[in-house]
Nucleic acid binder design. Structure first.
Length: 491
RNA sequence: CGGGGUGUAGCGCAGUUGGUAGCGCAUCUGCUUUGGGAGCAGAGGGUCGUCAGUUCGAGUCUGGCCACCCCGACCA
């Protein structure tokens, strides 16, 4: 483990890579572009899953599981969606290996095992799911159908980065079917709300809620909604998306239902997802040059207790003391770890837990036992204080809320400082240098958006949902515009 | 797929005109230590990416291949 991380100001990208590795979140695997999520990183993902899963169930959804493989004929049924993913699909063409006669000890693909029809490894599951829904939906009484699945998907990316873009990643995908257009749109917006709520209140990351421009829209959707977060380097990150699919998939897979009037109609659909990319968002939104900072609600370990001692007698006393304290904290539903390893010294443990982003650290040594105090260190502010043993539990409980709020507010403040409103091309370019979200007028044409992207690498992150209407001139063309949209360079 | 770069111990690297491989960290053992990443002493660990060529002799020179990284186009 390196003693010091590269500083964010020196090389943000390097800082991120080192942090992911050193904090034991994930590592590169023997498979190009695919990562191994290590136990500590996976524990954070599990916390995300647990909260989201509860939220999905509270909004009426149930979980199911659909296959990893999608027959090519099904995949291509919804043309726009298939075309959108065509360039990044892994394809299974054979089902058997055999001994290689030219090279003893090695295996080769058995040419006799060619599949009649190729199988696509799902980049997303709309096709297989809508094929299935056809059999499940006949009447308005079968609607709405509100299903989510936790799964892995594969998108063959050119360039990958741990958590942010990997060839295989974990996510959840909700797929719902509704009797009316309005209901499907309502569902799409509701789930965007769930994502925004999760991001802000659990990940402590403020997000913009918005609609994607046509260029950035999900292939096969009529409308794509998104939450956009801002990272500390001024780049935007799409943290979640929710799609109103109209009747596109219903038509492609012939999913019709009898409505109350006895007439056949295609069902209306939504789909929505967040992925392990949220791990990247969590890391880049909060962490500092000392390592990870995890908001208490997501931290696998919320409080770590480090004993300090010289002799076995001292150690025994501390163990006794800590076992009581640990129970008291656990009774308040705090996730506590007593780091009683005798193979590492206290200083090492301090640094390690700091690197791993444990929100609160308690240090207990002989001096504390004598004075009835405990040293309390706060990860987000790097502050230390000595507190009365009798008050520790109450202080820690309050700190869990305080740190969560404080982290959100800091992220919110950073975003505010990195948000610009510009009116001219010169101002726009200057704002891009600085980074962050840029509110600017755009004439609404895909051509202008494309041109701006080619010139500056900036894309329209979203058109905010509660956007204020305001007449102005497009920063590129000078044409009339009815509202500002949000530009940024993005991950 | 284009442009650039790198492959030597678990990780990061050095290796001169070609002469049989080394440093730091990590690991292991022992002693001393323990309130912010311990110190000292000792030990283990290598098909030098791979295949061929030149040579008495290749980590070093030549050629092919493979892998990975960075920059572009694509993308949650």
């Amino acid at each position: 483990m390196a003693k010091e991380l590269t500083k964010r100001s020196t090389d943000y990208s390097k800082w991120y890579n080192e942090l992911v590795a050193n904090a034991d979140l994930a590592e590169h695997s023997a498979v190009k572009g695919c990562m191994v999520i290590k136990p500590y990183g996976y524990a954070i993902w599990e916390n995300m899953q647990a909260v989201l899963d509860k939220m999905f169930k509270e909004t009426g959804h149930v979980n199911a599981y659909f296959p990893l493989f999608v027959p090519k004929s099904l995949f291509e049924a919804e043309e726009k969606n298939a075309a959108g993913f065509a360039k990044e699909c892994a394809i299974v063409t054979h089902y058997r290996l055999k001994a290689n006669p030219d090279k003893p000890g090695s295996l080769m693909v058995d040419p006799d095992s060619k599949l009649e029809e190729e199988l696509i490894v799902r980049p997303t599951s709309e096709a297989i799911i809508w094929k299935t829904y056809k059999g499940w939906i006949q009447s308005y009484r079968d609607l709405p159908l509100l299903i989510n699945q936790w799964a892995n998907v594969v998108r063959w990316e050119m360039r990958t980065r741990l958590f942010l873009r990997t060839t295989e990643f974990l996510w959840q995908e909700g797929h719902t079917a509704h009797a009316t257009r309005e209901e499907a749109i309502e569902e799409t917006e509701k789930m965007l709300g769930v994502y925004a709520d999760f991001s802000e209140n659990f990940l402590a990351i403020p997000v913009l809620r918005g609609i994607k421009s046509a260029n950035e829209r999900f292939a096969g959707a009529e409308e794509t909604y998104c939450i956009e977060a801002l990272m500390q380097d001024g780049k935007a990150l799409q943290a979640g998306t929710s799609h109103f699919l109209g009747q596109n998939f219903a038509k492609a897979f012939d999913v019709k239902f009898s409505n109350k009037e006895g007439k056949l109609d295609y069902v209306w659909a939504s789909s929505w997802g967040v992925s392990t990319r949220l791990m990247g968002a969590l890391i880049m939104a909060h962490s500092d040059d000392h390592g990870l900072i995890i908001p208490p609600k997501m931290a696998p370990i919320q409080v770590v207790i480090v004993p300090i001692y010289k002799t076995d007698e001292e150690h025994a006393k501390i163990v006794e003391h800590v076992s009581v304290l640990k129970k008291e904290l656990e009774a308040q539903n705090i996730r506590v770890k007593f780091d009683d390893r005798d193979t590492q010294r206290p200083g090492f443990k301090f640094a390690e837990h700091e690197l791993r982003g444990v929100p609160v650290r308690l240090g207990i040594g002989p001096k504390d036992l004598e004075s009835g105090k405990i040293e309390l260190a706060r990860r987000d502010t790097l502050t230390k204080e000595s507190v009365e043993r009798t008050n520790v539990v109450a202080i820690v409980v309050a700190l869990m809320v305080e740190i969560q709020t404080s982290m959100f507010n800091l992220a919110l403040q950073r975003r505010a400082e990195s948000t610009s409103v510009v009116n001219t091309w010169e101002e726009f370019e200057a704002a891009l240098e600085k980074g962050g979200f840029i509110y600017a007028h755009w004439d609404g044409t895909p051509e202008s958006e494309q041109k701006i992207k080619e010139k500056t690498k900036a894309t329209i992150r979203c058109i905010p949902i509660d956007n204020i209407k305001e007449n102005g001139k497009c920063i590129l063309t000078g044409n009339d515009s009815k509202q500002r949209v949000v530009f940024a360079r993005a991950y």
